[in-house]
Design a protein around this nucleic acid. Sequence first.
DNA 1: GCGGATCAC
DNA 2: TATGGTGATCCGC
Length: 649
Amino acid sequence: MDSGTNPPEPSQDTASLVQRLAGPSTGKAGLAKDQTEINRIIAEASKGSKFYENEKKKDKDLTERITRVLKQRDEALQGVDIQMERDLSQYIVHVDMDAFFANVELLYQPDLAGKPFGVGRGVLTTASYEARKYGVRSGMPGFIAEKLCPDLIFVPINWDRYAENSQKVMDVFRRYDPNMNAASIDEAYLNITAYCKDHNIGPEECVREMRAKVQEETNLTASAGIAPNKMLAKICSDKNKPNGQFYLSFDRKTIVTFMHDLPIRKIQGVGRVNERLLEAVGIKTCGDVFTHRAMLSLMDKQFGLDFLLKTYLGIASNVVQPGQREERKSVGSERTFKALSSKEKILQKLEEIALELEGDLNRLGFTGKTVTLKYKLDTYQVFTRARSFDRWISTKKEDLFATGKELLLPELPLTIRLIGLRVTKLKDLRASSPSGGIKRFFEPLNTSAQKRRKLLDDLEQSADLPVMELNQTEPEEAMPGFYEHDEADEELDMVVDNVEGEDHPLQIHATETTVVQTRPRPPVSAPARAFSSRQQNAEASTSSGSRGAVESRTATTSYITRASEAASRSRSAEPSIEAPLDTGATGTLQCPICTKTLETDNQGLNSHIDFCLSRGAIMAAQTKAKSPVKGFKSWGKKNSKSSHGKRKG
DNA sequence: GCGGATCAC
DNA sequence: TATGGTGATCCGC
């Protein structure tokens, strides 16, 4: 910007010095050119004076201090990495079946080979690889897929087939890790460390062998990722898909490099919405997290600094265990249909749903205390209405229907395209109840196999659960999800300890985490905030087995755009996303980390935050990580104010 | 506790 | 002309 003729080193100093000389009142309004010119004149006039020399020295000192701070910060983060290496001991594998539904269908309908087809109707759960060449993707509406590929063949869903084949596949996986975690019908996490050791083979060879076994026994192919933790393994399994595998070298440098250019969207828990929010603040890749760490620390409450930093460093849980306990939180049923306005017809749909729900509740052995009605208008706006009871509700269709009606009737008249009922605040009727045993728990579920749910429940149950676990312990303390608290936490704690030891402890007020929790953490992991909630979600969902689109995360352009448009259309306008920091503003700012009040501009604040970050932020983040997690919320207080009307169509 | 949102699959 | 279903979590009320 200014005198480019200066020697290399002073150039930077000069800029800040000039700024310093200009005094604290450099408003941002004046804007660059005028202000720089003014600053220059002031600097020129001050030259040679004692004041000038003193300021020069002060500026130099500050610059050096900042250099030290940055170095310290880098060392701290490096320290985390180094510590992390201690934890590179486990070979974690994520296996993902290739185009699972499509390839299973090929086993039953060989004439489909080489043809473009999709599984599903309204929305495709899977597209054959042939169809993908046309741009057809899972999650894509059928009519769009058809436009992309007029010859597309639509194959109806056959859950029985997928469940059966999934069983076979999982059985293979289990040979390599008895504690394998079936993350969904076509995905699993394994820890093959023990297997590799026992059989004296390397992880890559092991996985190659396993995938070959799968293919040999099921004629289905799988892709896999091998990495030191689940997050990385999952990302890696996508790298050489289909029918490939990717081994992420277990050294810090490789991991950091790997993460650096990785689109943040690849991280589990970062969906379309958060991708856009992060993009709006300049974060597209995991490396950008580091670049914008100062801003992110200010946005901690919204984004979850802890989660993002861990992600940037490639740190995540490496605990693999079967989806065990019955931690189901809800049972529900919903159906989409041609939009209806007639009260009678709508009630009929509701009754059908009530019947389905009754079946599900009884089959699964649950009741609950809260019933939630969900309906979607023909405008696609979704609403829910709930009612809680003091008692366990009756799971009889008539009673579910009655409650549903009670919730729905006041809303009418409406034009509705979906109705659903869900029961929450569950009670597990088959759990180690007062007198009963788990008796029917493993009893074969004979009925007609048309229900995918049942099949998948079978699937889960077949993962031999130790029976004793179930009746021995109080429901409360049979809490294995506890481990989900990954070792990363402990390691970070250690690192922080080290860093703290080097210097005087910086005061860290847990800014928003009211309490530093020393109590045992709640069931299931409570890692970072925000995104982590979705991680938990993913973890938890493994126990019930999800059954949605296979291979979902293949972003499609057009309809995604439309979806988000629709979403924002119903609200006010697109939230105008402004730079959260006024880059030139000077004033009283509060450091979000140490909560200290600072009289500085943004640059100063940034420097200060860097300072805090290098020593305290990680610890603070850890502290917070141990308490229940907050979210990834609206954009700060400033515009968080309700755009939140409760209107309905 | 309720309702809206987001996310995974 | 026709965009799914199940389950989980978080936040602001």
